[in-house]
Design a protein around this nucleic acid. Structure first.
Ligand SMILES: [Zn+2]
Ligand SMILES: [Zn+2]
Length: 347
DNA sequence: GAGTTCGGACTGTCAAGTGG
DNA sequence: CACTTGACAGTCCGAACTCG
């Protein structure tokens, strides 16, 4: 919740955050053009790129997320002309700098912070323990020794990228562009004859391409099986939401900045207005917040699947690495820590 | 609303594997 | 032996939950 950000209940005060981008003002749907008013970009930050990280130095995501983007809108960048209203556009140079800063971890969290899964610092007692009056129990944990003798099999050698070499965009339906350039171009050789084929369509880092079917057609509903990801042999695959159901834009296509007025088809709900929030920078103050109760027809890929009821014993994608530390949560250790009433005002 | 819990994304580190 | 790769072990974000 915003409690983490706003009142920093148990974390240290966050550094001053960049100015939040004002939310897209709620507007009742009245058959008017679906997209945001002029000046509102259809930026769609990649979930892993600064998605939802208000602490990211590149600024909060704060991007207008559409339940489903309007057909005809082909691509989500570059930024439109500066808005006439006071709403901040995405920084023009954003695509180049959307690389999210890595989260910095302390080498060893104190036992209290570790058991509470909260941020620690190098000091002992750490800031959080001081805040909660746990200074005397603020000690470093003991790091387990890494397992040895684990066989790995042959390594996959990554073919090194030469400078200027453009990696294939991994977001295509089959992982490769359907219009691969001829071999001579791929090898960097001089184009033999005919018009040069434009380079692969590459979105700036952190952005999805959007290519929408012509008016009159609609994006297919999300289908976990169609994504080619959820089939690990398990019958009910935990639905990793597909990146998006649309198709990449072939090179040479003109970009459409905004699609023409387009009334919603009958039966489609208008986009839910963003909830009136006191914290515009809060990443979940987007459509994500409502997603649990009433998922919008074509919700874009959530930055993180957090809406499901908590299920115990899940494994992350790096879960293999966590196999040995499953006793992490769900033990009483935490009670010793966080059940402790905050003694902030004890003085 | 404030505080707590904890799933899982993310990071750091280092052993195993590879190439020169 | 230096470097790369892969995965273990850890941190901690942030949503869900609980409590007063
Ligand atoms: Zn600590
Ligand atoms: Zn501590």
């Amino acid at each position: 919740m915003s409690s983490d950000q706003s009142n920093s209940s148990d974390d240290q005060a966050q550094p001053p955050q960049p100015p939040a981008i004002p939310p897209y003002p709620p507007q009742p749907y009245n058959g008017a053009p679906y997209p945001p008013p002029p000046g509102y970009p259809f930026y769609y930050p990649h979930p892993d790129q600064n998605g939802g990280d208000p602490n990211a130095p590149n600024g909060p995501p704060g991007t207008y997320m559409m339940p489903f983007p309007p057909p005809g809108l082909v691509y989500a960048y570059p930024p439109p002309p500066p808005p006439t209203q006071g709403y901040a556009p995405f920084p023009p140079q954003a695509p180049a700098s959307v690389t999210r800063a890595k989260r910095k971890q302390v080498k060893m969290a104190c036992t209290n912070c570790a058991s509470a899964c909260k941020r620690c610092d190098e000091a002992r007692p750490c800031e959080r323990c001081l805040k909660y009056g746990l200074a005397e129990s603020c000690i470093d944990g003991v790091r387990k020794e890494r397992k040895k003798g684990i066989k790995r099999g042959p390594y996959k050698r990554k073919n090194k990228q030469v400078a200027g070499d453009v990696p294939p965009y991994a977001g295509y339906p089959n992982g490769e562009a359907p219009w691969a350039p001829p071999p001579e171009q791929q090898n960097g050789g001089a184009p033999s004859a005919g018009p040069p084929i434009p380079p692969p369509f590459m979105p700036p880092e952190g952005y999805y391409p959007y290519y929408y079917p012509p008016p009159g057609t609609y994006a297919p509903p999300h289908d976990a099986h169609a994504n080619g990801e959820a089939q690990h042999g398990q019958p009910p695959p935990p639905p990793p939401p597909p990146p998006h159901p649309y198709y990449p834009l072939p090179p040479g296509y003109p970009q459409m900045a905004m699609y023409p007025p387009y009334p919603l088809p009958p039966g489609h709900l208008p986009p839910p207005p963003p909830p009136a929030s006191s914290d515009p920078a809060d990443p979940k103050n987007g459509p994500d917040g409502e997603a649990a109760a009433a998922p919008p027809p074509q919700a874009p890929e959530p930055p993180r699947k957090k809406n499901a009821k908590r299920a115990r014993g899940g494994q992350g994608e790096d879960g293999a690495g966590k196999a040995g530390k499953k006793a992490k949560h769900g033990e009483d250790v935490r009670n010793v820590v966080e059940t402790h009433p905050p003694v902030i005002a004890a003085a």
